[in-house]
Design a protein around this nucleic acid. Structure first.
Lengths: 89, 89
DNA sequence: GGAGTTTACGAATGTCGTAACTATC
DNA sequence: GATAGTTACGACATTCGTAAACTCC
């Protein structure tokens, strides 16, 4: 599990669409598609249900989404805290 | 910033010692040393004060440690939640 | 000289993008 | 045939471990 995978996952969950998520992330579709699959493989759970229209969160996906957002928030908090500390002089 | 870097950082912060941290992580010392430096470079802050005896947390390091632990806890929570969901059958 | 950390370098791993493939409407 | 996702493959980047170097007592 990598931070990039978590970012990709959240983007796809929000868009319901690998292509749009990839554009937003400024990355090619296959990169997103691959990372999502690796994440699912590692976690041993299908996070999305593939439909002809796009990707929909599975039950496991809904569970994971909340935690994924918490992780990204923690990372942002860590960066912000250091930025403040650095400019504290 | 990667999850491995954060794990390495927490291990070194706890041990105050790259060598011991590396042994605990089952990884060679240089791997840990390099990742710590890259993390510091990316964050633009020295997380440790190097002493002849080992590594001590800097002020910025103390600030970052709390957030680093929060990130790893979030990751563990995410994994646990999925494990429960998976075994919910 | 010993304890600890960092740099050098080649090997292995991972990730990316383009292009081709599959499937559904 | 258009739309959406995935696989193949070669190129690029990152990470690792071993070995050598540096630093402070």
């Amino acid at each position: 599990m990598s931070l990039a995978q978590i970012e990709y996952f959240v983007a796809v969950a929000q868009e319901g669409h690998v292509g749009r998520a990839a554009r937003g992330l400024r990355v090619a579709q296959p990169a997103v598609s691959r990372q999502i699959r690796r994440l699912e493989d590692e976690l041993g759970a299908a996070l999305f249900v593939r439909t002809p229209r796009g990707m929909q969160l599975s039950d496991a996906g809904h569970v994971f989404l909340a935690h994924a957002r918490a992780i990204l928030t923690s990372v942002r908090d860590a960066r912000d805290a250091l930025r403040r500390e650095r400019s504290r002089t």
